[in-house]
Design a protein around this nucleic acid. Structure first.
Length: 312
RNA sequence: GGCGCGGUAGCUCAGUUGGUAGAGCAGCGGACUGAAAAUCCGCGUGUCGACAGUUCGAUUCUGUCCCUCGCCA
């Protein structure tokens, strides 16, 4: 069977996405595309909970292991890469299916991004320096040039202040105006796997223990030899804490593990909250259900609500 | 059994010279357009161990009891 539309399976970390999608690919004629901002990195396997080599050989994933940890990568690049992959999969007569937990990437797929305002590293550094020299200036400037954006961004949110000003300086247009037009790309059908919160937290805790057993610390030590801890990739949950642990910032290994669990739980929570913004997302509860039952529900949603892939 | 320290939020604890209480962590809620596993914001009512006494009023003072921990037998 061939699904209509392009399914996106979104779920917080440790929900069990991989297993479900692998089963799904047995019933549906799909090619799996990862939608995960950290699994794009090579060499970061254990900490990002990538599928195993064995799983990948049976169920190949696109958009996985595509850049090195010190390469710049961002939503825009992801969107371009994804659109290219979609094209080539389509040419093969197959259907792509996206799985992952990066909300912003899902958003960029379905709603797009506004055009042509990429990051400017030098400008960012300059703005950051300004702010350090006299705290509060960026907000003052932003209030003058783009009051609407200024009112929406919290004064402490440095990244967003910088971004809004960056857009203004680079384009002369206001960040608040440029982002206004967004239309959904109806090809994408968002499915949200819901698991009971407590169950997710339990699974998170278990997964962290498993990661340590599998060699998270060794993997991180290896990465530290080649890469700076200041890289975005190295700030990912799991690596960040392990770097601190290896640098002796924790009183004990237990304290390190507890912190790692806690940060992962917080992350899962943010992912859950992200999903609440979409009224058009299809929820599928997963608790106490067999994988087969879950797959059936998903295929039903796809056949009932999806638009024909080939017609678009 | 005796002595001592404690018993306050899910946890660790602070505090109230008597007017029913607040921090950190956990937890919860939220924001989010080229760094997103990032970044940022908001939320604290709980038989103050139990019972009795003193008092206009007790979580606070007094007494008895229960429990934890420590020391001595």
């Amino acid at each position: 069977m061939k699904p209509s539309g392009i399914p996106i399976v979104y779920a917080p970390t440790a929900t069990g996405k991989t297993e479900i999608v692998m089963s799904l690919s047995k019933i549906l004629n799909i090619e799996i595309c990862s939608m995960d901002s950290m699994q794009i990195y090579k060499k970061m396997d254990i900490g990002t909970a990538k599928p195993t080599q064995n799983e990948l050989s049976k169920y190949p994933h696109h958009l996985l292991n595509i850049v090195f940890p010190d390469e710049n990568y961002d939503v825009n690049r992801y969107r371009k890469d994804a659109l290219n992959i979609i094209d080539s999969i389509k040419k093969n007569g197959n259907t792509p299916l996206f799985v992952g937990g990066t909300g912003l990437y899902m958003d960029a797929l379905r709603y797009g991004l506004f055009e042509g305002v990429s990051r400017d590293e030098n400008l960012r550094k300059e703005l950051e320096k300004k702010e350090t020299e006299s705290p509060g200036v960026l907000m003052e400037i932003l209030t003058r040039v783009d009051p609407e954006a200024a009112s929406k961004i919290h004064p402490n949110d440095l990244k967003r202040k910088i971004r809004a000003l960056e857009v203004f300086y680079l384009t002369g247009k206001r960040f608040s105006e440029i982002g206004r037009e967004r239309k959904a790309d109806e090809r994408f059908i968002m499915i949200y796997l819901i698991r009971n919160r407590e169950a997710i937290y339990k699974r998170v805790n278990a997964r962290v223990e498993m990661m340590i057993k599998k060699g998270l610390i060794e993997e991180t030590a290896e990465l530290m030899r080649d890469y700076s801890p200041h890289l975005q990739s190295m700030k990912a949950i799991g690596y960040r804490e392990t770097i601190d642990f290896l640098n002796g910032c924790f009183e004990s290994k237990e304290a390190f593990v507890e912190t790692l669990k806690k940060n992962t739980r917080h992350y899962a929570k943010r992912q859950i909250i992200w999903a609440r913004r979409y009224k058009e997302i299809f929820p599928v509860t997963v608790d106490d259900k067999e994988t087969k039952e879950i797959c059936d529900e998903i295929t039903t949603i796809l056949s009932t609500h999806g638009k024909a892939f080939n017609s678009l």
